[in-house]
Amino acid sequence: MSNLTNLQVGDSLEEITLSPVSRMDLIKYSGASGDFNPIHTIDEEAEKAGLPGVIAHGMWTMGNLSKVFTSYYEEGFIENFQVRFSGKVFLNDVLTLRATLQEKNNETFSFKVNVSSQSEKVVMKGKVVFVTN
């Protein structure tokens, strides 16, 4: 297992590419999170809102992004997790989750994080501060 303390500035954590976004993914997230806004699950409602089809919950994508750090919870935890939603995610999009170490200061590791789709369009970007104290 990789160790956070061995990381150098500029190094990336192992990136994760998700299976194409499915309607079932979004139905499950609606149920698990309690966010039943129908633009995430029902085509007609998405169209009424002026969208070409259902879009993923931004929080589903953010929840997925946090997975990049899961294998490091034995070393510490996420103190700050900040993202900006910069693009819509549609069914069948293939998302890749990335984190790159930007700064390292004793027990604090700051990462640039982002999620991009198959066309390399960035749909979410932000910052994670992971602390090992």
């Binding site: 809102a49 931004g58 929080m59 953010m62 996420i78 700050n80 900040q82 993202v83 900006r84 939603f85």
Partner: peptide
């Protein structure tokens, strides 16, 4: 009820 756009989300934790 409709048309809200989620722009940013920011978590801060003291511990998990």
């Amino acid at each position: 009820e409709k048309g809200l756009i989620h722009g940013e989300q920011n978590y801060h934790y003291e511990r998990p």
